[in-house]
Simulated assay, not measured.
Amino acid sequence: MSGFPSTRRRGPGGRPGARRPGSRGDDATAPEMVPGAPDDEMGDPESVARGICLRALTGAPKTRQQLADLLAQRGVPDDAAETVLDRFTEVGLIDDAAFARAWVNSRQAGRGLARRALSAELRAKGVDPEVAAEAVNEVDDEDERAAARRLVERRAPGMRRLDRATASRRLMGMLARKGYNGGLAAAVVREVLDHADSADDADQAFDDLDVDSQLP
């Protein structure tokens, strides 16, 4: 038998392997910890909610619903979340109307989205339908038509090698994905392609004239 002493811990009374109540590994008395729960971080759910919202708003504006969803994901109790969201709305840190206006301006100018697509995006972000409608109505028919025309004019040159029917179908599909209705899409595509055809005819006529002038 080895002369080394046993390395097994002995509990009270010399019983090997006994653990003190509450010690690590005692499943019966270990407190239940929920990863990411507010009490794990600061102990005050409202303080946690304020911190989460401020960090989220630092990157970009958010709607009230987006922040509410984020707080729910982080385990903030509903009452604490509502208190903080109400306070942020009161002081103007949350402003869904301003968010909707900025979103419409950016997405309509930058991506050329139609009003239908803009409304769908705002709904997905939790903006109240009436607030969303007020922002989207800032885009009038002429704005929408001009945006559609810019999209087609930008895309059409890359389709010169296609026959007109195929180019028209692809351009109308692109406008449909941007939220434009079929009537407007068809009219704009026809206008742009007609103009392109006229320009091509003019270029061809000039080329022919230039060749004729060089003949003896």
Score class of each variant (00 low, 15 high):
residue 207 D to W: 02
residue 175 L to Q: 09
residue 133 A to T: 03
residue 122 L to T: 07
residue 135 A to D: 02
residue 21 P to Q: 09
residue 81 A to P: 01
residue 26 D to C: 06
residue 33 M to Y: 12
residue 36 G to E: 09
residue 32 E to C: 11
residue 212 D to S: 12
residue 6 S to D: 11
residue 145 R to N: 02
residue 22 G to R: 07
residue 71 L to H: 00
residue 63 T to Y: 09
residue 194 D to N: 14
residue 18 A to I: 14
residue 188 V to K: 01
residue 19 R to C: 05
residue 112 G to W: 02
residue 6 S to T: 10
residue 191 E to Y: 00
residue 73 Q to F: 02
residue 67 L to K: 00
residue 1 M to F: 01
residue 84 V to K: 00
residue 17 G to I: 13
residue 141 D to R: 12
residue 165 A to L: 14
residue 151 L to E: 14
residue 59 G to N: 13
residue 187 A to N: 10
residue 178 K to A: 13
residue 82 E to I: 00
residue 202 A to C: 03
residue 103 W to E: 04
residue 149 R to D: 04
residue 97 A to Y: 08
residue 202 A to W: 01
residue 200 D to I: 04
residue 110 G to E: 07
residue 99 F to K: 13
residue 61 P to L: 04
residue 125 K to S: 10
residue 181 N to Y: 01
residue 174 M to Y: 03
residue 177 R to L: 10
residue 153 E to A: 02
residue 191 E to G: 02
residue 116 R to C: 08
residue 155 R to Y: 14
residue 8 R to G: 10
residue 147 A to S: 13
residue 145 R to S: 05
residue 169 R to A: 14
residue 23 S to Q: 06
residue 118 L to T: 13
residue 33 M to R: 15
residue 163 D to A: 15
residue 115 R to W: 02
residue 84 V to L: 00
residue 99 F to N: 11
residue 199 A to R: 09
residue 179 G to D: 12
residue 91 V to A: 13
residue 49 A to R: 03
residue 61 P to M: 04
residue 133 A to L: 03
residue 196 A to K: 04
residue 191 E to N: 04
residue 67 L to D: 01
residue 67 L to F: 02
residue 36 G to F: 11
residue 18 A to H: 13
residue 193 L to C: 05
residue 185 A to Q: 05
residue 80 A to L: 04
residue 43 G to T: 12
residue 130 E to H: 05
residue 140 D to W: 05
residue 190 R to I: 02
residue 107 R to F: 04
residue 30 A to L: 06
residue 4 F to V: 10
residue 114 A to C: 08
residue 51 G to K: 03
residue 189 V to Y: 00
residue 191 E to M: 01
residue 67 L to G: 03
residue 60 A to G: 10
residue 10 R to D: 10
residue 88 F to Y: 12
residue 156 A to T: 05
residue 206 F to V: 15
residue 168 S to P: 04
residue 129 P to V: 09
residue 141 D to H: 15
residue 134 E to T: 15
residue 181 N to V: 07
residue 110 G to K: 03
residue 116 R to V: 10
residue 5 P to F: 00
residue 162 L to E: 12
residue 129 P to D: 11
residue 118 L to H: 15
residue 101 R to A: 09
